[in-house]
Nucleic acid binder design. Structure first.
Lengths: 206, 206
DNA sequence: TCGTAGGTAAAACGAGCGTTTGAATGCTAC
DNA sequence: GTAGCATTCAAACGCTCGTTTTACCTACGA
């Protein structure tokens, strides 16, 4: 990370992601960020204009890819004839879990995401809704079709609970130490299984 | 709130809770807190010693009561002969939901709690574990007895997911507007039902 | 070769931060 | 009434914050 192979902008984004995850948006200063990125202090305002703009770009960099993967996985699942609830949940969970466990700071990003959820930042909620709302609409419709006995409000509640559980769980997976003798791949698959079974059973509850 | 009927310490705690919920621990300044509490700036350091100590007291004030209620509800549930999973979950959820919807800032506190979870603050985790760990141990044992087919690790995972879901959901209940024509009491009971059914089904999943 | 544009550098700006100080105040006990 | 103590107050402390300024470096097309 932060080696000279990466551009100034990329190094700032990487360092900001790490420090926002650890210290929060208000808690991490631009001096800490630029020092970690091995970059001059003024570079942030030169390349991003302001700290708030930097925060937005930290989100955009990961979410564009994450939501594209989710939509792609959903379309693949829907294309198969026997797709059930578990397949839809897998399409939602696996891309995020892949991100949370991959190299290059994805693990830090899901913790940033959990922070953002907890902060109830209106500007950020609007940003997420504007840019990625269509993805959630797509998933909601697919779930509704497979849960015909659930009325709209009930499904809304349950999906909200699922999303909350996922965000928290994923932020933790990057922190919880896996037992020795368990590869990261096994750890990830087991985590996804737990989440999917839990969520599916909860959604199917009478 | 913050009227002259309350002592300086109480007004500071109330204002701090509100502002920590809205702006975070780092984001809310003591000048904002003391202004909202209608109190002199130096009063925080006089009564609490430091900002960090103030944060701890904000937690202690609510958690002492919350965990006492939870333990009491659990003992009552266990005393009844036919107590099932739903009863245990109700003992865990109802006191927190009562707190999140009552007058006097409890709703703000659950949002503070969600923030604290998201922050992964080690000092705070130790504080919570030291002061309230015995409560979680009690619940864990009760769940383990009613889920004999679940091995220790599996139960650990599922309770962790449940706790995450609850924290998020409860932080949201204070924000989500209930539909007109639904009393707060109905809203609360319906919320608890959703959470309990969801969690019970998830815990029972094969 | 020079001029220009894009990027980096050090330094400083005003503002706000948590905390401390020392004097002014209110209250209780003698 | 006054001594003694707890509390409140305005002011200032040293420090860090996000941002801006100004100078400098480097590379490339005319």
């Amino acid at each position: 990370m932060n080696s000279q192979h990466f551009s100034t902008k990329e190094r700032i984004l990487g360092a900001a992601e790490q420090l926002f995850a650890r210290l929060g948006f208000a808690g991490a200063s631009l001096r800490q960020v630029t020092a970690a990125a091995n970059v001059n202090l003024a570079a942030v305002n030169y390349h991003f204009g302001s700290k708030e703009n930097l925060i937005n770009e930290v989100f955009r960099r990961r979410l564009d890819e994450l939501n594209a993967h989710r939509l792609q996985a959903l379309e693949q699942a829907l294309a198969r004839p026997g797709a059930d609830l578990e397949d839809l949940l897998a399409a939602f969970i696996h891309p995020a879990l892949d991100l949370s466990l991959d190299r290059g700071g994805g693990g830090a990003f899901v913790r940033v995401l959990a922070r953002a959820y907890a902060e109830h930042n209106d500007a950020l909620r609007k940003f997420l809704s504007d840019n990625y709302g269509h993805v959630m609409k797509r998933f909601h419709a697919a779930f509704a079709q497979r849960l015909p006995d659930l009325d709209k409000e009930e499904l809304y509640w349950r999906l909200d609970i699922v999303a909350g559980a996922l965000t928290y769980a994923m932020a933790d997976f990057g922190v919880i130490k896996r037992k020795s003798g368990v590869t990261e791949q096994q750890h990830r698959e087991r985590s996804a299984e737990h989440l999917i079974r839990f969520a599916a059973a909860g959604l199917r509850a009478p």
